[in-house]
Every structure is written in structure tokens, then in C-alpha cells.
Design a protein around this nucleic acid. Structure first.
Lengths: 252, 252
DNA sequence: TTGAACTGGTGACATCGGTCACCGGGACAC
DNA sequence: GTGTCCCGGTGACCGATGTCACCAGTTCAA
């Protein structure tokens, strides 16, 4: 889909760069709820069938409603989608790309989990429906395509459409499990193990064998200091678990 | 309710002691699903109105169904309700008492949160409905009265009764938040802060000003060693934040 | 070209917390 | 009594990790 959109932009001759946020109203009568990102809208009709490809469980009736009230948005890499203390008006479902969720206390951060395609953000969900501020931060890790659902409507859809209800129960469950893993890892694993797991997971999610990551960035996601990563990385390299090439980190 | 039950037991002249598990079928035709605890059943009709007191949001129709398929059980202190790797047949809702939930890796434990009155265990919920083994352990911290719902029926009730659906969304949300707090505390707080918060929370939940706790037990719940607790406790005492009396720990 | 910014690398050091060994006091059964 | 637990208390020690200072190579813009 991203490719298709890029072609469309090119065709229109618009002066959009990679960092320009592009928005398509699914139908022109789509409601315009608040968006927090720096955006430029492109009115561009989109096939419902296309959304169905990403969310095959959703009924035609529901997709019709989504088409009326929802919004599709392409967000480039590295954009803040949600931050702590913020109130939520729209709940995103990731269609393409990757969104990372993390917690922060006084400059120190910790990656909690990633939101991948066909997944959603339960923090937005709960914050949007209960009108409570967010406790976490979310950033796009890659350029991502998000389906935004207005919180008012979503509350109603959860009751009305079992598929939506089901989706969010699944998501809650998934995140609960991931948080549990995070806790276990924090409490029981030493840095080398945590770093190694992190790199494996990152490689899996990105589908890349060689990861181009700064030590500083890794340190941030693991809630530690840059020097520690440098040190531990060195050790893992000596143990033959990975190689640090000029192009990036290769896991063996 | 516990008091009422105890009186009833006394009246019957039964030789039940405090540690004997007593079970009441809400109605005699209640289905007998698997129970994992060491139990002795007492057939004892119970008023639906009584349950409604604990779960005021539940409709009469739903309570009627619960009465047919559910089970009420009094569980004494210190009984294992759920352990890692176990499959779940019945999902408990705590009516009275306190249940503690924790994770364990190789003898090392960590308290995750408490399940109080009118709350439920989402791990059981998810494990019961998806037929997936539990990832956590649960013990009664005090003598507790549990309402047990068969997993088969609960799946249906979630769809049928918005109140049930609502309850579990709330619970997921609550636990998500608590796990987030646990993670933040693990990552950002030192032992003295963690211990102090733990004691405050314990005091609040138990409604006791003086806590009778072994250092060893605290160490277990905070995922550390007994000597560490002794040391840190001493420091907190010197800082004037608490007093260690023969009766227990008094927070100031 | 030059300077600034960023990156990885490294040694020295402090701190926290986990481990071990051992002690004395109290409770309890025999 | 006496032996056996359990409990809290303590000192010694060590390993993991966070912190600081500093360095050299690279990139990039002025």
C-alpha cells in the first residue's frame, strides 16, 4: 500500500518529501477528528476491499462504518504518535509498518513492545474510551500506514461488532504477555542475554539480517547506558554470537 | 459473608476447621466442573441477592445464569489457586479476601499484583477461553470467597452480557497499568523505594497499620534475598520511615 | 580547511545488590 | 533440660552495571 500511495503522490506531482505526512480521507464525508501529528491531507478515495485485506475478520457492514468515520494515514519513520499524559481522540490500528511503545522516567527509557500490522494500541484504546491520559509513549519505527478510529465510535463498535471486541481482547492479552516477558527479562536476565534477545527480536520484526543501529539507541530501548552496550556487544562478539560490521550488526 | 458461612458451619456442628475448604453449590443443579483445590463440598443454597451485593452491575438474568452454572467457594489463606503451565477450567471472581499473583523463574519470585473484591484474574480468563496454559501463579493471601465461572459458559456470557464484557476490559486495563508500574519500579527505583512502596501498598490493601511479615516473605515478593530486606529495612528504620516492633512493621 | 557533532572504544571507579558464613535469641517438641 | 528450627542481624566479599573522563575516527556543514 505504501508503494501505491507513493506512486499516487508522484503522479500528482506534489512536492511531498519522505517526511511529509500524508492523509487520505477514505470517503470525502469522513469526519475530521483531531489529529495530533503534523499533517498534510490528501483527499484520496480508498477501496474498502483494500482495508479488508489487512483486517480479514471485519464484516462488510463494519468496514462500511469504518469507511465513513475512520481515516487512513501514512506516517513516516520516527514520528511521535502518543505520549505520556496525552488524551486520546483516535485509536490507531497499524495496517503496515511498525510502531514502538515505551515507558520513560526522567530521561531513562524502556522499550515495552512493538505494534505490528493488524495490531492495535491498547493504551490508546483504554485512554480513548475512559478519557484518561496515556501512560506510555509511541513512535513509528518504520514508515507506517495507520487506520484511525474515532474513540467515540469505537466504544459503540466494540459493543456492536464482536470482531472488534475480539480484536481488543486479543490485543490486551498479547500485551499482557509481552509485559510479563519484559518483567521476567528485567528481573532475571543479565545484560548480555537481554541485549541478545533484543537483537534477535529486532531482526525478526524488521526482517533484516544486518541491523543498522546506534549503540546509543539500543541503550535507550534497553534502559541502560551507551558504554554498557558497547561493552556487552564486544563480549557477544568475542563469544561469536554476532559481528559488528561497518554496515551494522550481524547476528550469527 | 465469611462470617455468615462460619456461623452456618458451626451450627451444623461440622468438624470443619479454619483451614478446611468449604464449597457451596449455589443451586443443587449447578454443574460440577473441575476444581483443582483440595475441597470438601457443602451443599448450601445461597441467595442471588447476596452475590448482587458484590457485583451490583450484573443483571438479574445474568445472575440467574451464574446461579445455575457457577460455584461459590471459600478458600483459606495460602492456597494455590493457579500455577504456571496449568490449564484453566474455571475463572474466579473474588468476592471477599485477597489473592496475590506472581511470576517465578528458578526459585526467584516477583509479586505482580493483588486481586481484590469484585475483581477477577485475567490470566485465568485468557487461559480459560483460549485453552492456553497459565504464565503466572496465584495464591490466596487471606481467606477468600471466590465465585467460580466455568470457562465454557464465560465465553458465551462475554458476548451476551455487556456487563461481563465491560468487567474484563476493566480488569485487563487495571492489570496492564499495574504491570507498567511494576516495570517502572523494577527499572527506575532502588530497593529502599521499592520496599517502602510495597509496605505502603500492603498496608493499604490489608487495612492494617502494623504488618506482620517475615523478611523472607517480603524478599520473595520483591524478587530479592532475605539479607537485603534486613539491610534495607534497617536503613528505612534509621531514616524514620518505619519501626520494627515485636508485633510487626509499623509504617510512620 | 576547519571545527563541530556524532560514533564507538576504553580504563578507572563507585555503588548496589546478591551470596556466604556465622551468630544469638526465641519457640517448640522431646 | 537439650536439640532443632526459624528469625533477624552482620561483616566480608564479589560481580554486574552505571558513571565519568577522555580519545580517535568519521561525517558534514560552514
Amino acid at each position: 500500500m505504501v508503494a501505491k500511495v507513493k506512486r499516487a503522490i508522484k503522479k500528482r506531482g506534489a512536492k511531498f518529501q519522505a517526511e511529509v505526512l500524508s492523509v487520505w480521507l477514505i470517503r470525502s464525508r469522513g469526519c475530521k477528528f483531531l489529529c495530533r501529528f503534523n499533517t498534510r491531507s490528501v483527499d484520496m478515495p480508498l477501496e474498502i476491499a483494500e482495508i479488508k485485506k489487512y483486517l480479514p475478520g471485519f464484516s462488510t457492514e463494519l468496514l462500511d462504518e469504518i469507511a465513513v468515520h475512520g481515516l487512513i494515514k501514512e506516517v513516516p519513520e520516527g514520528v511521535e504518535i502518543l505520549k505520556e499524559g496525552q488524551y486520546v481522540k483516535a485509536i490507531p490500528i497499524v495496517l503496515e509498518g511498525l510502531v514502538k511503545v515505551f515507558t520513560r522516567v526522567e530521561e531513562k527509557e524502556l522499550l515495552l513492545y512493538y505494534i505490528g500490522p493488524a495490531q492495535s494500541c491498547i493504551m490508546s484504546f483504554s485512554a480513548g474510551l475512559s478519557n484518561v491520559p496515556s501512560r506510555i509513549f509511541a513512535f513509528t519505527e518504520d514508515t507506517s500506514v495507520l487506520l484511525l478510529l474515532p474513540s467515540g465510535k469505537l466504544g459503540q463498535w466494540v459493543k456492536q461488532y464482536p470482531q472488534v471486541n475480539e480484536l481488543f481482547f486479543q490485543q490486551y492479552n498479547l500485551r499482557y504477555t509481552e509485559m510479563l516477558d519484559t518483567i521476567n527479562s528485567l528481573l532475571f536476565d543479565r545484560m548480555d542475554q537481554r541485549l541478545y534477545n533484543y537483537l534477535l527480536e529486532k531482526s525478526r520484526l524488521k526482517g533484516e539480517k544486518v541491523l543498522s543501529l546506534r549503540h546509543k539507541q539500543i541503550a535507550g530501548e534497553l534502559g541502560t547506558a551507551r558504554e554498557v552496550i558497547t561493552r556487552v556487544m564486544k563480549r557477544l562478539e568475542q563469544e561469536g554470537k554476532l559481528r559488528q560490521l561497518p554496515e551494522g550488526i550481524q547476528i550469527i
